[in-house]
């Protein structure tokens, strides 16, 4: 997490398939605006796509908040995914490479974590899930 001053953030709902595409497009726009490299943009957008789908499929829907980060001379993009779904009981297991909850959507969270600079998972059974990711300009 970062204590950077809050720039304008955009909140998008995640209720349907088409919302995942919308989140990808918004993340791409913000990543382009802070001038992340093309590879870093692609990694961030891909990570956002994975997490947006998780929010929709496992969390039963929720929202994504996208904002620009500034910390000293560094700039980056933060995306927060939150849902009020069942939560994750064993976060260590959920972050293990190759783990999926069974229906085999996605590569679990571990693959997604490798694509970003900051990754924070906040969840508990019955308390929903919030995943915060960030990518900084090099």
């Amino acid at each position: 997490m970062t204590d950077a001053p809050t720039d304008d953030q955009t909140v998008l709902p995640l209720k349907a398939d088409s919302d995942v595409v919308r989140v990808r497009q918004l993340v791409r726009d913000v990543a382009t605006a802070v001038r992340l490299s093309l590879v870093d943009q692609t990694k961030l957008v891909t990570a956002a796509s994975e997490l947006a789908r998780n929010t929709l499929v496992y969390g039963g829907g929720g929202e994504a908040r996208v904002r620009r980060l500034t910390q000293g001379t560094s700039v980056g993009v933060e995306v927060v995914f939150s849902d009020d779904g069942p939560g994750i009981a064993d976060t260590d297991l959920a972050l293990t490479d190759g783990w999926t909850s069974g229906n085999g959507l996605g590569l679990g969270l571990s693959g997604t974590r490798r694509l970003v600079d900051d990754f924070h998972l906040d969840t508990a059974p019955g308390a929903g899930t919030t995943v915060t990711i960030a990518k900084w300009r090099r």
Binding site: T42, K43, E50, G98, G111, R114
Partner: peptide, 10 residues
């Protein structure tokens, strides 16, 4: 960029 990301994703 897509290829790099795919491999890193696993």
């Amino acid at each position: 960029a897509v290829a790099i990301t795919l491999v890193e994703l696993g």
